Simulated scan of single mutants.
Amino acid sequence: MSGDTRVTAYVHGHVQGVGFRWWTRSRALELGLVGYAANQADGRVRVVAEGPEDKVVALIDLLRSGRTPGSVDLVVEAFDTPRGDLTGFVEK
Rank of each mutant, 00 (worst) to 15 (best):
L31K: 07
R6K: 06
R21I: 05
V90E: 13
H12L: 12
A9Q: 01
V48S: 00
A41N: 12
T81I: 08
V76I: 15
V48E: 00
R83F: 04
V15A: 02
K55I: 07
L29S: 11
V75R: 01
G84P: 05
W23A: 01
L31C: 07
E77H: 10
L86W: 03
V72M: 09
T24E: 01
G84I: 04
G17D: 11
T24Q: 00
V90M: 15
Y10L: 08
R67N: 12
G43K: 05
L74D: 15
K55D: 06
Q16N: 07
T5R: 01
N39D: 08
R46F: 12
G32W: 14
G17A: 10
V56D: 00
R44H: 07
E30P: 10
E53F: 09
T8Y: 09
V56G: 01
V76M: 12
G84W: 02
D61M: 13
V45E: 01
A37P: 03
Q16D: 10
R64Y: 03
L62E: 12
Y10K: 07
V57M: 15
R67G: 15
D54K: 13
D61S: 13
G84F: 00
S65A: 14
A41V: 14
T8D: 13
V18W: 15
D4A: 13
Y36N: 09
R67H: 14
P69Q: 11
T5K: 01
V11W: 00
V48C: 00
R44F: 03
V72A: 11
V7G: 03
G32M: 06
R6P: 01
G19Y: 09
R21S: 06
V15S: 02
L31S: 05
K55F: 11
V18A: 10
R44P: 06
E77D: 07
V56K: 06
S71V: 15
F20N: 00
S71Q: 13
T5V: 10
